[in-house]
């Protein structure tokens, strides 16, 4: 069977020590049995390693940061499309998803570019600040949490959740407070840095397990592979991990993806308590950087995503190999100054 030739634009080429998912997604696509894929890289910085990986990325373009607005992003994508004739776009950065989700229908209607992302409402429903409600709605346990605006609220929440208590910033930072005094201390530290509100979260102890998954938007989970980190960098990123045989976790994932009608790739982060309960800590609205492990275990999630984006019907994967490891490695590319010059001055490489 001859493979269908398509062009896919992928962002997140920052394959650095805290990597973006772009390169792993591209590797999945390049190994597709259905598609022969030409890859267009979309970059924000001139030193994203993927720019220089010419065996994976066929051509790259700089795109404007999300902070400069959707209009300039749309203009730039229209220009890129006029040269490359894109079939699908896969955004991989958290910060850019809002813009791409809003632009999705316009890209499809005006330029014929497909994407496969949740709608804005579903996207927002899994936000850190409303995750507890998300859990109630989709029948998955989430540590209790409450947004607070003043340290005076800590004691009441502490009495209800119990100590220790996790004190979290709106976007980043989390500390575990053993006493109300410590919690007040963290409140001030974190709010000084990230502003209000502060999120107080019930502390759940156990082992962290993660799932990379993909939903079809109609309530079907197309694929899911659970993984436990074996080695963690000082930034808390997995440097090695192993796929797990965990039917209960797969069942929970199916429920979350199914009930929320999730459309696209995602990563679910769980804590498995010593008594065997699973608590959802976070749901990332895109593939994780370790998504290539899923490909290695027999589920090519990036390929499935592209197929669904193009309107093909994709049957759920039925199995995956457990006990497969991923072990990340870093690699020094040698790059000519001329290449850096090209991307820096022309915005294309």
């Amino acid at each position: 069977m001859s493979k269908r030739k398509i062009t896919v634009a992928v962002s997140g080429l920052n394959n650095i020590d805290s990597p973006g998912p772009g390169i792993p997604v591209i590797r999945g696509l390049k190994e597709s049995s259905k598609f022969e894929v030409r890859i267009i890289g979309l970059s924000y910085e001139n030193l994203e390693p993927g720019l220089y990986l010419h065996d994976l990325v066929d051509k790259s373009y700089s795109i404007p940061l999300p902070s400069s607005g959707m209009d300039s992003l749309l203009q730039r994508l229209a220009y890129i499309n006029s040269i490359e004739n894109l079939d699908v776009i896969i955004p991989n950065f958290d910060a850019e998803l809002h813009s791409f989700i809003k632009l999705g229908p316009i890209l499809k209607r005006d330029y014929g570019i497909s994407s496969f992302m949740p709608d804005l409402e579903t996207f927002e429903s899994r936000h850190k600040s409303v995750l507890f409600e998300f859990g109630e709605k989709n029948e998955v346990k989430v540590p209790k949490s409450k947004m607070i605006f003043s340290p005076n609220e800590i004691l009441a929440v502490g009495n209800s959740f119990g100590f220790p208590l996790v004190v979290k910033g709106k976007y980043y930072d989390a500390s575990i407070a053993a006493t109300p005094e410590q919690a007040i201390n963290y409140f001030h530290k974190i709010s000084a840095k990230w502003g209000l509100p502060i999120i107080l979260q019930e502390f759940v102890s156990g082992n962290e397990v993660n799932v990379t998954a993909i939903g079809d938007g109609n309530g079907n989970c197309i694929g899911a592979v659970p993984m436990r980190k074996l080695y963690i960098t000082d930034k808390g990123k997995a440097w090695a991990g192993i796929s797990l045989l965990d039917d209960e976790l797969i069942e929970i994932t199916n429920r979350v993806i199914g009930n929320s009608k999730w459309r696209g790739g995602c990563e679910l982060e769980f804590i498995k308590t010593n008594s065997g309960d699973y608590y959802l800590l976070e749901m990332n609205p895109r593939f994780p950087a370790w998504v290539y492990l899923a490909v290695g275990c027999g589920q090519n999630h990036p390929e499935a995503l592209v197929a669904m984006a193009l309107g093909e019907e994709v049957k759920p994967f039925e199995s995956y190999q457990n006990g497969k490891l991923f072990v990340r490695y870093s690699f020094d590319q040698i790059v000519d100054l001329a290449e850096f010059e090209k991307i820096s001055t022309l915005g294309e490489l």
């Binding site: 100054l337 850096f340 010059e341 820096s344 001055t345 022309l346």
Partner: peptide
């Protein structure tokens, strides 16, 4: 200095436009 207005200082490793 290149035609694109790209300037490279080999002594410091800095580049400019």
């Amino acid at each position: 200095v290149s035609d694109n207005g790209f300037i490279f200082n080999p002594l410091s490793g800095d580049s400019f436009s």
